[in-house]
């Protein structure tokens, strides 16, 4: 039992480390600011939660776990908020996002989707390869 829990927590720690490095590589590799936000999101959610979960298992039922839960709680609320304010500040400063697969900057690729009211439920047909849900 002890061993099984240890193995589980090691696996969680390793997965967390993997996500952290993946996010770090993404932040260096992705082409523009907005796409880098997503890579940073990977380290903020995947890496953080997995590592915290791994530590919680090591902590057992104690004050340690409570503190880890609190850290996770604060991260859960503060990270998306700071990411949002970062994105909003960049957007307000007039930074244009890349369009398509790393194509050139277009001034405002959003406007046309503004004109048509967004249909909330209609499942948008995608290209054959990309069935929207359940792609690992």
């Amino acid at each position: 039992m002890e061993i099984a829990l240890d193995l589980l927590s090691w696996a969680l720690l390793l997965v967390g480390g993997f996500f952290a490095i993946a996010g770090g590589i993404g932040v260096v590799r992705l082409p523009d600011f907005y796409t880098r936000l997503h890579a940073s999101g990977v380290t903020d959610t995947g890496a953080a939660y997995f590592i915290l979960a791994g530590l919680m298992i090591q902590g057992g039922l104690s004050i340690i776990t409570v503190k880890l839960v609190l850290i996770g709680f604060f991260m859960f609320f503060s990270n998306p908020t700071s990411t949002y304010s970062l994105a909003a500040a960049a957007h307000r400063s007039g930074m244009a996002p890349l369009d398509g697969a790393g194509g050139p900057n277009k001034p405002e690729p959003v406007e046309k989707s503004l004109a048509e009211p967004i249909e909330p439920i209609e499942p948008t047909p995608t290209k054959p390869g990309g069935a929207p849900p359940s792609q690992p």
Partner: peptide, 12 residues
């Protein structure tokens, strides 16, 4: 916040 928490989408 849920949108932002899900990597791949960020609310701007």
């Amino acid at each position: 916040n849920s949108i932002t928490l899900t990597p791949g989408t960020v609310s701007v």
